[in-house]
Design a protein around this nucleic acid. Sequence first.
DNA 1: CGATTTTGACCGGCGC
DNA 2: GCGCCGGTCAAAATCG
Length: 257
Amino acid sequence: MAAFDGGIYNHKVEVLKIELERLRKENEDLRLALEIMGSKYEVLHSRLQKNMATISPDLGSSHDSNKRPRTEEVPVAKASQVFVRTNPKDKSLTVKDGFQWRKYGQKITKDNPSPRAYFRCSMAPQCPVKKKVQRCMEDSSILVATYEGAHNHEPPHDAGGSSYSPDSPIKGLVANFPCPTTVDPFQPTVTLDLTLSGTGTGQEKRRPQNFMEDDQKSNCSRVEEYVASLTKDTNFTLALAAAVARSITDQPKPTKA
DNA sequence: CGATTTTGACCGGCGC
DNA sequence: GCGCCGGTCAAAATCG
């Protein structure tokens, strides 16, 4: 009987291993695609800035002095967009980024059925930073936070425990998006005994090799959990890709010179 | 009771 | 000029 059960579990494990491998590969491909998209964005962005400089000389050259001095940056560079995965059941539009925020408004926008929340830094008016938080259309577990401005103070020590700081030098939205996804508590980190395959994502714990039948069962369910988490991860990556793509296409058009 | 959140009203920019 | 829409204000409600 034990041998029979063992046979079933071995078969199940084999099937799951195949599925696991497929999902891992799919996930890898998607991550690669995201990276490529990110680098392409950087290239396009720098090209756009070069073009702007040649089309409107007063933006790019230094010659005339009767125009107002070019002290400010292109406005686009002031805002950064970050994507944070949260628990979909959690309806609050809060992004833990180490700073304290005061909500001052909420709106339903035309392009997205979920409400957009408006926050100011709690140190305002000394600190001018604002942020907007809205759920991603493709995946309601993703929060899209748009930061404007930079904090002129240190984050409070007891404000969420995250090390992520959105006001570090802002390069562009794509360059910023991976940071918060690595600090979110709902990141699917699976504790898994991988005596089965010997592979994993770095969060697994080692256990003795001579596990018995019960261990086989629990291993099986752990693998199932892991496969489920990978599927979720793939879905997340897809939703993220869509959100990033839309952010790129929705960038505010530069004002005419 | 002060701080924070909620929510409807208001305002300004923009396109037609 | 008008209407739409995103962003902000501010009074009321809620929380700790």
